[in-house]
Design a protein around this nucleic acid. Structure first.
Lengths: 359, 359
DNA sequence: TATAAAAACGTGTGCGCACACTATTTTTTG
DNA sequence: CAAAAAATAGTGTGCGCACACGTTTTTATA
């Protein structure tokens, strides 16, 4: 391992001079600069990143604003775990991550938590922009304080210069459409189950439906789509009667598309007979949904890779802080197609990390 | 950031004592040990890996033994890029990676390159065990010198205590079977195209075929599989005549499964008519194959995630060297289902890295 | 030529930790 | 109870680099 010191000795100068050359600090005569550069080249020198990181006392602080999770509503657990894993890694390069959690149903909680966050004067922020109006206020504040920020999982349109890490919702719906059409015999009908109330201002579900429909319309083979608007996936009785009535009314339906993460609730109200002949496609690798994959009631799940979203978000922001790598405006994560057979492999990373945590 | 010094001050002891507790060096009284441990816990202390790496003068050297690649046969480029990306990251924790490339068609080259490698006395080795017999010799040498090792991409059975990073070939074939059956009308036939000469002693392709067949046999709906053994995917004329004869002989065939990475060669010899009615499923996201996905001639590709394989291999070995994390025996990477629509998203990481390299 | 100003270069300290070495306290033994 | 031995605790140095500051050399100015 060649050190700065070695270069300095060979060039008959001090370490400081080599340092100045390495960092283009100026104050070195043309002649010695050339001499040093040649030696650097010849000895194939590269800065020891470990020592460099230590000396620079990199203490970038990064704040995360994310919905809290609990047993009944565990969606935000996986992004959180991914963020944690990312945080652990970027410690190596001197980045410190702090978490601020808000109630995903309350805009007030969102804003209040952000106010607490901004008091800590972070260098950058990763946030889930659940509410459009409030997010515009927040972004204004972030710009004023020149704090870098990245949207996680939820994208808000019309925010200039914003960076997004998450899924391309439209395309994921489009792919769901392709898989559905592939799985159904020609001429079959297909139902789309949506809910009237959707959390926050998130428009992901609408985009998925749009993608799904667009694939169907663009496809050469004729087939019909039917839509059912259910009140809530939480109300089991109500859901059951709606779905059964829907399926009776349109007996050509051989497939159901559930563009939210609640397809397991739908499975829950189907008869054994219906589970057999219906092809089901849904979203998100929640434990309940994965169970449905495994018992063959659900054919495909499209995964948002929530764990990876958190992980990548922390990493790209850290690389921006530490290495000045540019923040691209969109980082679309892979659109994972999950089946009974591959789901365990595709979840392996996050499972390994969870196991590590327990120890 | 809590430092050892902070802990020492709070516990009213010296840094040396805290150090002894942290590393179980002994020589600390029960009482102070308990006191310090409590404080460590409460302050949520963790060793600063950067400073630690520097102080330990961590110069773990890691050697990689991998086939070389060129324009015509670029498969090994992606694992290599993944290894490079991993190498860059683990620099931060004091791991130095060196590459040794061999000719994938020559066992002699394999062994000779290894001999050069082992002279550098690496602490651990990542290798692609292309040849069974030679690998046994290599493993014996590695065990003798107590060098940790990890198999990349290719798994050799019957090597005790070996660690593998790659795909579960059987399951990937199984999933291909599922997708194929889903895509074909009931009662259609399906062809499997294999080659008689396969590189090295790699049995991945055989396992994929086995998985594919097993799905077909386990599936309730009746359908027939036909196999065609072609001489070589490189010989275009020969391939063309074999395939055409095959398809004429078995007109019920509506789908082709190509368990190697050369499905683009098959597309190349099909007529426009055949491209229309045949459903094609193959392996690996080579540029040629991806092009076939995009022009709708290939329906699905199963990706081995070669880039990720390299990346993960370097990381797990480094974590073993630096943090003493155990090496699990198998690290099966996600089985990615690629379609025209999602392929760009799923390749994004490696593309980003390639762009970074060019700058 | 003397002197100030600017350019070029050298020196020293600290980042947080690992580890060897030295100093102190406690326990054992005759 | 004193001396020796053992257990426990403190101190100091260096890892390779970044950066502030001090020193010497060169160039510009009167």
């Amino acid at each position: 391992m060649v050190r700065i010191k070695d270069i300095a000795i060979e060039a008959n100068v001090s370490e400081g001079t080599v340092d100045r050359v390495l960092h283009n600090r100026g104050g070195v005569s043309k002649k010695t600069e050339e001499k040093i550069k040649k030696i650097l080249e010849r000895r194939n020198f590269s800065i020891n990143p470990v020592a460099s990181a230590l000396a620079m006392k990199n203490n970038h602080n990064l704040a995360v604003l994310i919905p809290e999770y609990n047993k009944t509503d565990s969606f935000w657990k996986l992004p959180y775990l991914g963020l944690l894993k990312g945080s652990e890694e970027v410690k190596n390069i001197g980045v410190n991550v702090t978490y601020f959690k808000f109630n995903q149903y309350s805009p007030e909680s969102y804003v209040e938590t952000f106010n607490n966050l901004i008091k800590t004067k972070p260098k950058a922020v990763v946030l889930v922009p659940m509410f459009i109006k409030e997010t515009h206020l927040i972004v204004r504040e972030l710009k004023k304080t020149e704090t870098a920020y990245v949207f996680l999982n939820v994208d808000i349109e019309g925010v200039e210069g914003s960076v997004y890490v998450g899924q391309d919702s439209y395309m994921s719906g489009y792919i769901a459409g392709k898989l559905m059409k592939l799985s159904l015999p020609d001429g079959s009908g297909c139902g789309i189950l949506k809910t009237s109330t959707s959390t926050g201002d998130n428009q992901a579900i609408a985009k998925r439906i749009q993608g799904f429909k667009d694939y169907y319309e663009g496809s050469p083979i004729e087939s019909v789509l039917y839509e059912l608007k259910v009140q809530s996936f939480g109300d089991r009785m109500n859901l059951a009667s709606s779905v059964h009535q829907f399926l009776e009314e349109f007996p050509s339906i051989k497939g159901l598309f559930v563009p939210s993460s609640r397809i397991s609730a739908v499975v829950d109200v189907l008869s054994e007979e219906q589970k057999k002949y219906l092809k089901l496609i849904g979203f998100d690798n929640t434990p309940e949904n994965v169970a449905c994959l495994k018992n063959n009631t659900v054919l495909f799940l499209i995964s948002q890779k929530p764990f990876d979203q958190g992980y990548e978000a922390v990493r790209i922001v850290s690389n921006y802080l530490v290495k000045n790598k540019v923040l691209n405006d969109k980082l679309y994560l892979p659109i994972d197609i999950l089946t009974k057979e591959n789901v365990d492999y595709n979840d392996a990373t996050q499972r390994m990390f969870e196991n590590d945590l327990k120890q």
